[in-house]
Write a protein that binds this DNA or RNA. Sequence first.
DNA 1: TGCGTGACTAGCC
DNA 2: AGGCTAGCCACGC
Length: 104
Amino acid sequence: MSDSDFFQKVYEVVKQIPYGKITTYGAIAKKIGASRSARMVGYALNASHLNEDIPAYRVVNRKGVLTGKHHFQGTNLMQQLLESEGIKIKDNTVQNFDDYFWEP
DNA sequence: TGCGTGACTAGCC
DNA sequence: AGGCTAGCCACGC
């Protein structure tokens, strides 16, 4: 809570996502009191690659699409990580998204 | 200093 | 039902 609490709050919420679960930018934004700033959540996650403890791959857009997979190393790293947790993905979209959704 | 852009979402046409 | 616009805020050029 000092220079950039927004980013810090985003990081804390993302860290709390349990194994095998995913959430959305909007849910995080709403949790930290910036429901209309979902873009900033994505922006924060973009910067989170500097923080090893941030499982940003568990965050997708509201449709369950891996919109940010291009920001990960490789081409399908994000998908691989999610699949390794038991989440089915097809065409960059999480199957049974509502079943895996986790609200902070 | 100012405009454009972006890991988004909800609402309007 | 589907496409477009507007709102948010930080950062780069």
